[in-house]
Simulated scan of single mutants.
Amino acid sequence: MPKKTIKKTPKAAATVSRKTAASKTGVTKAAARSPVAPRKAPARATGAAAKAADPVLVEGKRAPAFRIPRDDGSTVALKDFAGRKLVLFFYPRAGTPGCTIEANDFSRLAPQFERQGAAVLGVSADPQAALQRFRAKNNLKVALASDETLAMLEAYGVWAEKSLYGKTFMGVVRTTVLIDENGRVVRVWRNVKVPGHAEAVLSTIRDALS
């Protein structure tokens, strides 16, 4: 019985065939070998951080503990406010227009927050010296704290990727957190718009007490 003849594909032809198949699917050998997954697009085109949209803080749950440097050279911790409400407002950078307006608004309303049994603390990644200048220049009546280590900012989910004018960078997403007397999260305002915000936070506290 005659032997079957097996027709072999020339190596060159096989190579071309594989390259053609790869080009049709849009996958190259390099991409197939790469262990790095494609980078996802930001959750919002507005520049709000995708990470900040994650439910890092859950209302009704305990707020992350912290101890960070204050603008007066001392330190401040969450446990220092036991038995009182605490308003934490996280802002991107001391001295910038939006942050100055926000800090001034909370400062102007500080006596009213005090009457509602609430302390106010502003937090950013600025060094202590910058916060001291910021507070003195604007005669602020609220305390400011510095988290250059980013540990607290990350724990509260406010340190994340942002974008501006087509460039991406890491920074503080403007956020406010209301914590009750027992250290539990009452309310979280994300991607804050500054005009009228301090008043809205004060109103929320008043409504909760009425």
Rank of each mutant, 00 (worst) to 15 (best):
K4W: 03
I6N: 00
K8A: 13
K8N: 00
K11Q: 12
K11R: 03
K11P: 08
A12W: 01
V16P: 00
S17D: 09
S17Q: 14
K19N: 09
A21L: 14
A21R: 14
A21C: 01
S23M: 08
S23T: 15
S23I: 12
T25M: 11
G26D: 09
K29D: 07
A30H: 07
A31Q: 13
A31E: 10
A32G: 06
A32P: 04
S34T: 09
A37H: 11
P38H: 13
P38Y: 12
P38N: 11
R39D: 04
R39T: 15
P42F: 12
P42E: 09
R44S: 15
T46D: 15
T46E: 03
G47Q: 11
G47V: 13
A52D: 10
P55G: 12
L57M: 02
L57N: 09
G60A: 06
G60L: 13
K61S: 10
R62N: 10
P64M: 07
P64T: 13
P69A: 05
R70N: 12
D71F: 14
S74I: 02
V76N: 10
V76G: 09
F81R: 14
F81M: 11
A82T: 15
R84G: 00
V87D: 06
V87T: 04
L88K: 11
L88N: 07
L88F: 06
F89W: 14
Y91W: 02
Y91P: 03
P92M: 00
P92F: 07
R93F: 03
T96F: 02
T96G: 04
T96D: 03
G98A: 06
G98R: 05
C99M: 03
C99S: 11
C99G: 00
I101R: 13
E102D: 00
N104Y: 01
N104T: 06
N104R: 00
L109R: 08
F113V: 04
A118C: 08
A118I: 02
A118H: 01
A119P: 05
G122I: 06
V123I: 15
A125K: 09
A125H: 02
D126S: 06
P127V: 14
Q128F: 10
A129W: 07
A130H: 12
K137S: 15
N139C: 07
N139F: 00
V142W: 05
E148D: 01
E148V: 08
A151T: 13
M152T: 15
L153K: 07
E154Q: 10
A155G: 07
Y156G: 11
G157Y: 04
V158K: 11
V158Y: 13
W159H: 02
A160H: 10
A160L: 04
E161A: 10
S163V: 09
G166I: 15
T168D: 14
M170E: 08
V172F: 01
V172R: 13
V173N: 04
R174V: 08
T175A: 03
V177Q: 01
V177S: 06
L178V: 15
I179S: 04
I179Q: 11
G183H: 09
R184W: 08
V185W: 04
V185N: 01
V186K: 01
R187A: 03
W189E: 05
N191V: 00
V192N: 02
V192P: 07
V194H: 05
V194Y: 13
G196E: 06
G196N: 06
H197R: 01
A198S: 05
L202C: 08
S203Q: 15
I205D: 07
I205F: 08
R206H: 02
R206Q: 13
R206T: 10
A208V: 05
L209R: 15
S210C: 07
